[in-house]
């Protein structure tokens, strides 16, 4: 039986009628056409689908849309400000923190949760934090570099 779910997505109130078994990532991609959130493994392992729900990074392929009812959801599309990239996105661009780019939205969203908890992480802490984000191009070195640069920029550094 279809149910109504309402949530705030990237600052915009949305109400969608979905099946009860609809995943959050399906609502984002198929109903709202926010296709920046990717589905990689679809088995909770790769982290390409990471979004923020009430400020916490979660795997949108492992949460029902109904579980996010009433929540504030932020996706990769919600980061840029009027076309100006978020400092973390800019850091990925500057440091070539991507190769094919498929994992990138999840990497950026995951990185922002880390920086919210730990504004000045070490390289080791970044690597540990990325436990749930896989890059099949194995470009981790520049991803870590990007996150350190993004964290520095968010602290007001150069």
């Amino acid at each position: 039986m279809p149910v109504n779910v309402s949530m705030n997505v990237n600052g915009r109130a949305v109400v969608e009628e979905v099946e009860e078994r609809t995943l959050l990532v399906e609502l984002l991609r198929e109903n709202l056409r926010l296709t920046g959130t990717h589905v990689g493994c679809d088995t909770s392992q790769c982290g390409a689908c990471v979004v923020h729900v009430d400020g916490r990074s979660v795997k949108a392929c492992t949460m029902l849309a109904t579980q996010a009812h009433g929540a504030d959801v932020t996706t990769i599309e919600g980061l840029a400000d009027n076309g100006k990239l978020h400092p973390m996105q800019e850091a990925f661009r500057e440091n070539h923190g991507l190769q094919c780019g498929f994992c990138t939205p999840g990497m950026v969203m995951s990185a922002l949760d880390l920086v919210a908890r730990n504004p000045d992480p070490t390289g080791g802490e970044v690597r540990e934090w990325l436990e749930g984000n896989l890059c099949r191009c194995t470009g981790y070195h520049n991803i870590v570099k990007s996150i350190l640069a993004g964290a520095s920029a968010m602290r007001g550094g150069s």
């Binding site: 909770s44 990471v50 979660v58 492992t62 880390l114």
Partner: peptide, 9 residues
């Protein structure tokens, strides 16, 4: 346990 996103849920 698991990874940060698993620990968040």
């Amino acid at each position: 346990i698991g990874d940060p996103q698993v620990r968040n849920c």
